[in-house]
Design a protein around this nucleic acid. Sequence first.
DNA 1: GCAATAGTTAAGTAAATGCTTCAGTGTTTG
DNA 2: CAAACACTGAAGCATTTACTTAACTATTGC
Lengths: 111, 111
Amino acid sequence: MLHDPAQLDLMFQALADPARRQMVDRLSRGPASVSQLAEPLAMSLSAVVQHLNLLEASGLVRTQKVGRVRTCQIEPKALRAAEHWINERRLSWERRLDRLGDFLVETKDET
Amino acid sequence: MLHDPAQLDLMFQALADPARRQMVDRLSRGPASVSQLAEPLAMSLSAVVQHLNLLEASGLVRTQKVGRVRTCQIEPKALRAAEHWINERRLSWERRLDRLGDFLVETKDET
DNA sequence: GCAATAGTTAAGTAAATGCTTCAGTGTTTG
DNA sequence: CAAACACTGAAGCATTTACTTAACTATTGC
């Protein structure tokens, strides 16, 4: 479910915005309400709610409402999925470089 | 230089687009020319060049022109920077959960 | 019950994004 | 040298994005 390309798309899209990354950063230090998330941001509460909805749709953040306050937390599984996508590509490249290096070493003294 | 927030911004922005991620994916399997990058994509070569320029500006891809062909490769250091950003936030959250778990275990038999 | 609090929703708008086409620029190849 | 090749750049356009304001709905505290 987390590796389906549509979800991955939403995640990277969500992480593309500085305000949303700041929200994720704040949440990485612990849960927060919508107003707490909004506090350091130079925009209306309404804008923050819209960002938060994107973050939730992407799976990066989970929220639950108790009374009138919505408490938000990070969903580490989603973060891990994005991390994993990048990591696989990087490793694929680096393994390729390693093989190339091996080949060069092997052929070095075959002149 | 890679951890400066502006560069990180460009990187996540670059990774947000599916076509650009597909290009990164292709490049993770080895270098490619602009036309080779364009081949699987359902858009004009010109559009691909525009995506490529973003990828290069973000630091994720490095290119060099020899004759009339521009050869592109992944810059693993940049990928690592994006990876690192996500990883730190996830770990920060998970460490917090661990401490919380420890606390609950420690307090359990103090009834 | 009536404020104040915490958030939600809708509508509008300016700017950014992701394309397209078209008219180039250098570079090889026959 | 001429034609094909591999891009490149500018202009234009439709859509999406990131906001804003304003009106509204639930809670909670006095």
